[in-house]
Design a protein around this nucleic acid. Structure first.
Lengths: 263, 263
DNA sequence: CCATGTCCGAATGTTGACATCAGGTCGTGC
DNA sequence: GCACGACCTGATGTCAACATTCGGACATGG
């Protein structure tokens, strides 16, 4: 008996389908950073109407994977140091909350799944698996933590940066060095251990923060340094300062199974 | 001599207009919690096509203000204790990051504006202003902090919960008691002071968390105790992981550019 | 040669109509 | 009387066509 026997057979619309296809295409490098995603082209290519494409793109915009403007073609985001800084800072805040919350709410099933993912990660690593495969497992691991936390809004916020995290890691294949790969696996194993231990909230919180920080620094090391160690003022154009950016469309709250794939 | 002399004259689409109108209507109580928002009705009422309405509703869904399903009418969210818990926990995580980041990036103009908002808040309070007015100022205050932080993704995440925070506070007019009102103003003044001082990051982080927690508890106190939401959850986490308590969420939110209405 | 005004292509923004689906109601058989 | 199935209504999902706007190229005047 599963806690959730049936994954609830959700009726997806075309927009979701379009979003998934385009997202995978972006991850696969079909559309490099800065490349335009024209609605008509995608509509023809996918065999659907522009409306569906439009809605799907709006969803991807919500995920921060693409940017658009008034009467301007949407383009794939290009990862600058400022972007990485922004995304990972937000991710750290969310991850910490997710970990601490999961500490109190994780079910035995959640804990088992986390261990299984870490084991699989280690196995794949030993087998010399490619970066996308390891990244997918990495993502699945964190997705599970968010799911265990059981906070819909938190999960939604995570999904708003998740694709960017994946894309950035994929573009800059920072996992290339074996040393770092092993470290990542070790960090995940430690996270799973602390969650199972169920005790030290402070320790877990700190580990979650450090885990993200490790990834952030390893990515920033590969990017042109805009300014000092402490990036201030890297506001830049990417996002709008006023905060009222025109984005996307409605989220669907909960999406349990990771959609990204890219395996 | 503004830092940004011209507010950039953004070209808004119909979807944004629709979203603003509907949001204001919801805040004004035109659509009570649970009420259906039918696309055709709104289309006729606003004099636009269903497409525009659809896109606008998608935006509101992203803000968590409405919920929808496959071929089911969208409805206004009803604030349960679990919802408040979720929203405020996420908000606390975001607010903490925003405050700490703003500590390093806030410009003198930002600081002046924060002080001005607090003063105005105090003045309105003394003048016996209504709850919506105080809430709007409260929101503007926090919006300014997010803006000062200069992290677009963080701001986007904030906007995904901002409307809910506003709605919850508005529905349960927890600010009714004069005592609490005064406390809120004092907390804001302290936040502004710490930001201007520019020093103690730890202290600021903790204050931001407490500020949100105060609001969270005051709201939960007014809601029926759901049982299941979470055993340890509501009060919870008394321990602070980083020395600062990980959760907690905050109270008000508002929107800067006066869209919210009610005022 | 630089600055200004105008035109054109292309993409998005917007629209109204058609197809599909969920929920409730009624009717039927046991 | 109860369970099951078909039907109908109303809503959203989807589509193809029209209107608006951006960006650049071209021509023009100083």
């Amino acid at each position: 008996m599963d806690d959730e026997p049936l994954p609830k057979a959700v009726r997806r619309g075309l927009a979701d389908e379009v979003a998934d296809r385009v997202r995978d295409a972006v991850f696969a490098g079909r559309f490099p950073p800065g490349a335009p995603l024209r609605e008509v082209e995608l509509a023809e290519s996918l065999g659907v109407s522009r409306g569906a494409v439009r809605e799907g793109l709006a969803r991807l915009q919500r995920e921060g994977l693409i940017r658009t403007g008034w009467h301007r073609p949407t383009t794939v985001v290009a990862a600058t140091a400022a972007d990485v800084e922004e995304v990972y800072r937000v991710r750290a805040a969310l991850d910490r909350l997710a970990a601490v919350t999961a500490l109190r709410r994780a079910t035995p099933r959640d804990l088992d799944e986390l261990d299984r993912l870490v084991d699989e990660m280690a196995a794949e690593l030993a087998a010399g698996a490619g970066v996308p495969r390891l990244l997918a497992l990495d993502m699945a691991f964190h997705d599970r933590i968010y799911r265990a936390a059981g906070n819909g809004r938190l999960t939604a916020a995570w999904q708003a940066v998740r694709s960017q995290v994946f894309l950035f890691q994929l573009q800059r294949v920072s996992l290339a060095r074996g040393q770092y790969r092993a470290l990542v696996v070790a960090e995940h194993r430690e996270l799973a251990r602390l969650l199972r231990a169920g005790g030290d909230e402070h320790h877990l919180d700190r580990l979650a923060a450090e885990h993200v920080d490790t990834a952030r620094r390893s990515l920033l090391a590969l990017l042109p340094d805009p300014d000092g160690t402490d990036p201030a003022g890297t506001d830049t154009a990417g996002t709008d300062p006023d905060g009222t950016d025109p984005d996307g469309t409605g989220p669907d709250g909960t999406d349990p199974e990771g959609t990204t794939a890219a395996g």
